[in-house]
């Protein structure tokens, strides 16, 4: 309960005596986590834990092990734990990933001891440990009107659309709002006001939807100084997306739609 928080990088918390037996085939790994407790700590600091890892374990299992058997104060978000809800985006070995989608066998060092580093995503305030304040992220999302906008009477049946029309924005429908892309963007880290890749992806989903009638409105919002033109095409977002969305491509399509106003 009153675990002493060490600022020493080298201090590694080992397995407690009442931990469950280490399964056969498990490798001991060091999990280094950037931690912060607002009630005790002045600033972020690193803590390390020794954890048994099976090749089939995911990084999320390492965090569970620490929380359940070593230090119950470790705080992080996770819900479905299967890469659908988008709660557990974090920086794993320096890149944004979902902890529930990264297998430990891909994290093992080629030779010697494996050290796994886990940090909160960048560019958002850290509330506690790996949990960040997502509100600025969702504010940008809400600002681009992420819902169907139509005029006139509703049709008596479905709003129909051809296969090709549906295909046009298929890629950007996959977004799970995990913020991995937005917090991988160097522009987002420094310019707190940039909409960020996720908001643009969700704008793209409606801008290129043949049933929607507010494309011009959304394009105007994204034509703003903090809109798509902030994108410097670093492709970090495309690399970070756990859903494989071609994020940079979507942003570029919005840029071109703005330049040529052609859909």
């Amino acid at each position: 309960m009153t675990a002493t928080l060490s600022d020493n990088d080298n201090a590694v918390t080992d397995l407690p005596s009442d931990a469950p037996p280490v399964p056969e085939g498990a490798t001991m790994v060091t999990v280094k986590i950037e931690r912060f407790n607002p009630e005790v700590d002045e600033d972020l600091h690193w803590e390390s834990y020794r954890v048994p890892a099976m090749p089939t374990d995911r990084v999320l299992n390492m965090l569970h092990y620490i929380k359940w058997y070593i230090d119950g104060t470790l705080t992080f978000r996770r819900s479905c734990a299967h890469g659908v809800c988008g709660s557990d985006a974090m920086r794993i070995n320096g890149v944004n990933r979902l902890a529930c989608k990264v297998l430990m066998k891909d994290m093992f060092a080629k030779s010697g001891e494996t050290t796994l580093t886990v940090e909160p995503i960048k560019g958002l305030s850290v509330e506690k440990d790996l949990l960040v304040d997502m509100e600025p992220f969702f504010e940008a999302y809400k600002a681009i009107k992420p819902y169907l906008v139509t005029t006139g009477n509703d049709p008596s049946r479905e709003r129909t659309q051809s296969v090709a029309e549906r295909e046009r924005f298929d890629d950007t429908t996959k977004c799970i709002l995990c913020a991995a892309c937005t917090t991988s963007c160097p522009v987002y880290w420094s310019e707190g006001s940039y909409f960020g890749p996720a908001a643009i992806v969700n704008a793209h989903r409606f801008i290129f939807d043949s049933r929607d009638e507010a494309a011009e409105e959304r394009l105007d919002i994204l034509n703003d100084i903090d809109g798509v033109w902030r994108c410097r095409t670093t492709f970090n977002c495309t690399d970070a997306c756990p859903q494989g969305i071609q994020v940079t491509k979507a942003i570029q399509e919005v840029k071109r739609a703005l330049m040529f106003r052609r859909r």
Binding site: F36, G94, E119, G123, E127, D133, S184, T234, N236, T248
Partner: peptide, 22 residues
């Protein structure tokens, strides 16, 4: 309140090749 909270700094972000070209 947000202002008073720290931001993650940690290590260098291992970004895409496109980031290094930028």
């Amino acid at each position: 309140r947000r202002e008073s909270l720290p931001r993650a700094r940690g290590k260098l972000y291992r970004g895409d090749l496109g980031m290094w070209s930028w």
